[in-house]
Design a protein around this nucleic acid. Structure first.
Lengths: 106, 106
DNA sequence: GCTCCACAAGTAGAGAGGCTACGTATAGCG
DNA sequence: CGCTATACGTAGCCTCTCTACTTGTGGAGC
């Protein structure tokens, strides 16, 4: 699957995987691969800048920690992020309904 | 609806509205608005370049005609376009399944 | 000891494609 | 005579994702 098609929907997916629990960047990539049945294998050059963008927008908070000698930046959903996630779920639903309707043969 | 989310899926929708009958650019925009229940109101600056791109790729053929004193460029789906449309329908299905799966709460 | 891979974070620069804002032109209505 | 709908088009911007790269630790295999 061309991950480029994500354009505009990646933010929603990042917020969604952080809904249940805080995760660090690398774990987010793995969580997305897991949830998508292996379809999504996002490059770090896509995910890390996106996370920073979402933090700058106030939808995520982050903090550094250390585990097994490795530094991790763990992200968690902010209150604003939770709200935006709900909106983006709605938007996705509306969007996919529209595309389904247009693409349906006949 | 933010039409920017279309990114990467516009081509499929353009090919889809041309599946049943050839249409000219302006009519394509109207057809998309109709099929989407008014959700899609694409600017000409989005649609016209996209149509030319699809023609350059060999997925559409075009010809000029004149109706009511106005010149129209009518586009029709080529054999290659029909094939690509079928592929893009599959891609969309796979894509929306993945996003649904990731966005689903829990 | 050395190499390679998994883990972990990041940046720089390129490319694609949709958007805004224009420009051009005809027909018809008030 | 101006406004709106019809009809086509381009230029330049902007955003986001991608490729390719850098930096560093820990553990497994040889």
């Amino acid at each position: 699957m061309k991950a480029d098609a994500l354009r505009g929907h990646l933010d929603a997916m990042l917020l969604a995987v952080l809904e249940g629990e805080p995760l660090h960047g690398y774990a987010i990539i793995e969580a997305l691969a897991l949830r998508s049945g292996g379809e999504l294998d996002l490059p770090t050059g896509t995910v890390y800048p996106a996370l920073r963008r979402l933090e700058a927008a106030g939808y995520l908070d982050s903090s550094w920690s250390e585990a097994a000698g490795r530094k991790r930046r763990t992200y968690r959903l902010s209150r604003a992020g939770r709200k935006v996630l709900a909106e983006k779920r709605q938007e996705w639903k509306a969007f996919s309904t529209v595309v389904d309707g247009v693409l349906r043969p006949g």
